[in-house]
Design a protein around this nucleic acid. Structure first.
Lengths: 343, 343
DNA sequence: CAGTTATTCACATACGTATTCAGAATTATG
DNA sequence: CATAATTCTGAATACGTATGTGAATAACTG
């Protein structure tokens, strides 16, 4: 046994065949006899031979690797990855593994030059983009990716005129509608929305629009001052809720654009001496793990991150294989806990 | 401009030099003149040239990639990654990026054959192992890794006769001591421990031992029945706490081997109509993000996951470079919140 | 100015695999 | 028994980069 890492030549020598035959045998080519294949496989196993990924990828021009990029926007601090996307990580990892692909992972500032890397250097065959970034920053980068022919899918708003690239996302509009309808059905009449409602954050905007539709359909009015901008952090939710309280606008419910915002808002409301859900009902969005641990447990709109991960990976693989692939919208689902005051 | 992905030959042609000169120029070799290097760099930039990772790795026999493995033991369900390790992920990812290394990620069953892959196939130069697995399963795999000369570091118990490979971990013994001392200082006299105390989970065992020392030092007795086995899940913590309550043993405090266990225990205790911290004080371990959201906010022993990530990566890189590297023990730190009843 | 040294680059080659093409061995066919 | 069809295998080569070696030029030195 040679002291170096065994190559296909070593196996060939031991098996009394040529190197190409070894390669063919291990890849299951039909043009190698059953008998020699068995023999070669046995030797390979015995030597603990593994195909050299770099040589193989170089030759085939396929890395069988996907790159997963998280955006840290808007909080570049050390923990600033949205827990919702972290939950998706498990599903993406497992699906990639099932499809025999490796997964590269990276955290990036949305403002950085992440768009010029992975596929050009043949590290990965395609990219998955996760993050609710400021769309004004995001869009130009996406355009560049499309222009240079990079294969990618992303989580975000599906449909609409701003859609760029193949997008997988949840039905934010319907999710907002479900949340507002639920609050209305339980007697709330003045529903505030915490979250950016501008085109910079299309997902948040759609959630707001969905809620507005439900509110209008119920014949309630949408009072001015009932929407406060908030980014996707607990602190931002805390600030926004405090601002809402201080403004003196009358409200008996909050629909937060995300669970993180909702959790921050809960803190602000309790600090103000108000009771949840008696005085103020709250509904979040995402169903992150912390939602069920919040006090009171947070009613929220669940995005199916498990299916999401599978769809993201499978859609990307289709694109890599040159097939066409459509965006996909996953249904939103209301998860009722205690914070909304439902019995 | 050729339609295909540009290679170093393309650049060479445009710059009027040979391919090796391009390679040397881009790698900053001193044996290429400033002037031609500038010229080559400009052309490379213009063509958006990226070094082919596979070719480069094949030639240098270095992938500049690290593999990160999470173990799902003991819960193979779809969300079963310890949040504590997920927190470490951010730090590891960023450190790897700063060291110009890519990061492959994978979730594995502890019982699977994860040990025979990454380095043999030259996908990665080394491996980081994260997970509190049953040591009886873990140890044989570690032995195999060592035997085949794989470069790896892992999170776990530092020191002790069972240590295998280079290990980075927290001072579990001292952490347990801090927790127990804190409870004792606030008047608790019957401290229960929830967590496996056997050699199968050395980290948990050490936390228990540290607590025992503090209890003994305070002249309190360690009653039988005050230790209940629990694995690192919320459900397991819930079950263990319920078992403790049902057993009728007198206790006024719980030290849980992890925050997940603690959070489960909180639920069981409140279900039993007891008040935290008045009737029962609770301290956890890890300081996962959910700890501060628990109700009441969980006092816990913090492991510095940020430093941990850096040390793991840097230690692994040392090993890869053939330098020797020692294990490293990070200090534990008590984070006082509400669940322990301190004022 | 001859001789020496330093600088800068090109030639040739290796990394380990996968694939094209052609040839050898085997079997089938008239 | 000669020829054709079939099955299997080997020789040659390409993927794109990095590096040892040596040749040419430029820069000094006495």
């Amino acid at each position: 046994m040679p002291p170096h890492k065994p190559t296909s030549f070593d196996i060939a020598q031991l098996a009394g065949v040529s190197q190409p035959t070894v390669s063919r045998a291990l890849r299951g080519s039909p043009s190698v006899s059953e008998q020699t294949r068995k023999r070669i496989e046995a030797i390979a196993q015995q030597l603990n031979y593994k195909v050299d990924k770099n040589a193989s990828s170089l030759r085939t021009q396929r890395s069988n690797t996907l790159a997963l990029l998280f955006f840290e926007d808007p909080t570049p601090d050390e923990t600033g990855i949205n827990p919702f996307f972290l939950s998706m990580l498990a599903s993406i990892t497992r699906t990639a593994a099932r499809r025999n692909h490796d997964l590269l992972i990276s955290f990036q500032q949305l403002s950085a030059n992440w768009h010029v890397d992975y596929e050009d250097s043949r590290k990965a065959d395609g990219i998955i983009l996760l993050g609710y970034g400021d769309y004004e920053l995001y869009q130009p980068k996406l355009e560049q990716l499309i222009q240079q022919g990079t294969h990618f899918v992303r989580w975000g708003m599906v449909g609409g005129q701003d859609e760029m690239g193949t997008t997988i996302g949840c039905d934010n509009m319907d999710g907002g509608k479900l949340a507002a309808e639920h609050l209305i059905a339980h007697g709330r009449e003045h529903i505030a929305f915490l979250g950016d409602a501008s085109n910079h954050y299309p997902e948040f905007r759609d959630r707001y629009l969905g809620a507005q539709h439900a509110i209008a359909a119920a014949g309630l009015d949408i009072a001015a001052g009932l929407q406060i901008d908030a980014l996707n952090t607990e602190q931002s939710g805390f600030d926004a809720a405090q601002q809402l309280i201080d403004s003196g606008v009358k409200f008996d419910a909050i629909f937060a654009a995300s669970d993180l915002i909702a959790i921050g808002a809960i803190r602000a409301i309790e600090d103000a001496g108000l009771n949840i859900p008696r005085d103020i009902a709250i509904i979040g969005f995402d169903d992150i793990p912390a939602a069920s641990l919040a006090h009171p447990p947070l009613t929220t709109v669940q995005q199916d991150y498990r299916t999401a991960g599978e769809v993201l990976v499978d859609t990307l693989l289709k694109l890599i294989e040159g097939k066409s692939a459509e965006g996909y919208m996953l249904p939103a689902k209301l998860v009722v806990r205690k914070s909304c005051g439902a019995h």
